[in-house]
Design a protein around this nucleic acid. Sequence first.
RNA 1: GGGCUCGUAGCUCAGCCAGGCAGAGCAACGGGCUUUUAACCCGUUGGCCGCGGGUUCAAAUCCCGUCGAGCCCGCCA
Length: 502
Amino acid sequence: MTLPKLVKDYIDKLKELRELGKDPFIIKKFEKDADAAYVIKKFSGLEAGEETDYKVKMAGRLLSKRKHGGVIFADLKDSSGKIQLVFRKDYTDEFKVLRLVDRGDIIGVEGIVIKTKRGELSILVKSWVVLSKALRPLPDKWHGLEDIETRYRQRYVDFIMNEESRKSFILINKVLHLIRSYLNENGFIEVYTPILQPVYGGAFARPFETYHHFLEEKMYLRIAPELYLKRLLVGGFEKVYEFAPCFRNEDVDSLHNPEFIQLEFYWAYIELKDLMDFLEKMFESIVTNLVGDTKIEYQGKIIDFKRPWRRLRMVDAIKEFGGPDVEKMGDEELFKHAEELGIHEERRGEIIEKLFDCYAKDRFVNPTFVTHFPLDISPLAKKAGGYADRMELYIAGMEVANGFSELNNPIEQYKRFKEEEELRKKSDKKGLETMPMDKDYVRALEYGMPPATGVGVGLGRFFMILNDKATLREVIAFPTLAREEGIEVIPELYPEVMDWYD
RNA sequence: GGGCUCGUAGCUCAGCCAGGCAGAGCAACGGGCUUUUAACCCGUUGGCCGCGGGUUCAAAUCCCGUCGAGCCCGCCA
C-alpha cells in the first residue's frame, strides 16, 4: 500500500490550511449565484480574449489543475457541467496559497466571466476558498476510473469521474417523474405497503428472512407488493400504484439484483386487454417525452415503442420460432421433449414456460405482449379458456412487465394456495418455488374484491433499455456486492489527525 | 451450481507463454515557465505483484487452494 505516502501530502496541506485559519471543514455554506451550465449558456458567444465585468460565485470539484508559473488553469465541475477557472498571479488573491489546493478538492470561487486567448470560456478568479479537502487522490485524469468492481464499490468516485454514469441516474429521475405524472393524471394514487411481511407472496422467489425482536416473530422482506395492493382494492381504492423496492434471495447476474424496484399498479373494473392498451400508451408517451421519438437504440438494435404492439399467445410464440405445438402434446410427450432439451420441471406449465424462454423469448425486440400463460404457474390470476388470463411484456428479449386479471374468487384462491402447499410438500426443491398460504389475503377476498387487472413492471430493465446499458448494475446506484474486507481509512493510517478535531 | 477470463504503484496498464534486481504513463513531491486544456521541460518519491500453501538455488511468472470481480451456461416467471 502506497496510499499512506500519497495521503501524507494531502493531510500536510490540510494542516497548513488549518494553520492559515482556512480549515475547509468548519465552513457551513457557500452562496453560489451561478453554475457552469448557466455561464456557458449565457456567455458562449464571447470573443476569444474578451473579458466581461460579469461577476459570479460558483462552487464545485476541481478536476484538473494546470500550472504555468504566473497563471494556473483548472477545471471546475458542478452538477450542471464543467467550466475552466483561471487564477492569475497579478489578479487572484492569495495566489501562492493555491499550492495547497489539489485536484479533487471542492472549492468556491468568485470572479468574472472571460474567454481566454485560446477561446476557452472561463472564470477569472478573484477570491477563492477551499470548501472540502480531498484526502485521497482522484483516478487518472485521462483514463479515469475503469475498473468495474471499483466503479460499483465506490460509486461516488465513479460519479465524479464518469459523467456518463451520473447521467444515467439523472435520466432515471426523469423517467420516474414521467411515470408518476402519467399515473397521477390517470387518476391513480400512490401508496406504500409493507416491506416487512409476516407472509411473503405475490411471486415465486426465495425471500430474505429477518426477525422482529419485539413481536418475537420471523418476518420476511417482501418479494412483491401484490397481495397488499389488492387488499387496497378490497378497501375501495380503484386505482393504486407503488414504486416498490422488492427483495429476492437469489443469484445475481446482469438481469437480477437481490434488491430491485418494481412498479406495480392495479385498476379495478378493467380487463387485461384494457391494461395492455394502457401500458402501450404509457410507455409510448414516456419514451416520446424522453427522446422525442418512439424509436430508441438499445445495444445496437432499434426498439420501436409505437403502438399497437404485437400480442400473441405463449403457445403460439413457441410454435412460431420452431418449437413444438404443445397444445397437441400430452403430458408424457411434453415431459419427454423437455427432458431432451435439458428442462427438468415438475409442472406442465413450468415446462411450457421454459420452452417459451428457450425458443421465443429472445426474438421479441420490439415491445410484445405474450398472453395465455399456463394456469399452474399463475396462482393469483383468473382463467381464460384453459389458460391464465395473464400477459408478460417482452422488450429486447427481456421480461419487463407481468400482469393479469386478478383472481378475486376467495374459494378458488384458497384452493390455489392449497395446491401450492401440496406441491411444496412433494417438491424436492425445498418449496422455494411455491407460494405460501396467506389466509389474511383470502379473508380479504371474502369481503369482495372488484374485478381488476394489475401489473408489475421491472423498472430496472426499463431503465437499462432507456440508458442503453447491458447490465442492471449500471442502473442501480449501489449494486449488491460481496462484503469488502480490509478497508483502511485515513485516521487509522495517520492517528495524529484525530487530535486536530476534538 | 458448472465453464472461461481477470486481480502488479492512488489510477490506466506492461512484465507471466519461455522462472533470474519490480517497470511505464498519469497522479504526488522539488525546480522552471503569465494563456494552458491529456500543457510542457528537469529531477524525486511511491510496491504484501489479491491472499495462503507447494515446486525450485531462485517465483509477479510454474502448480494447488482460497477470496474478489467480469462474461457465458444453469437457476431465479
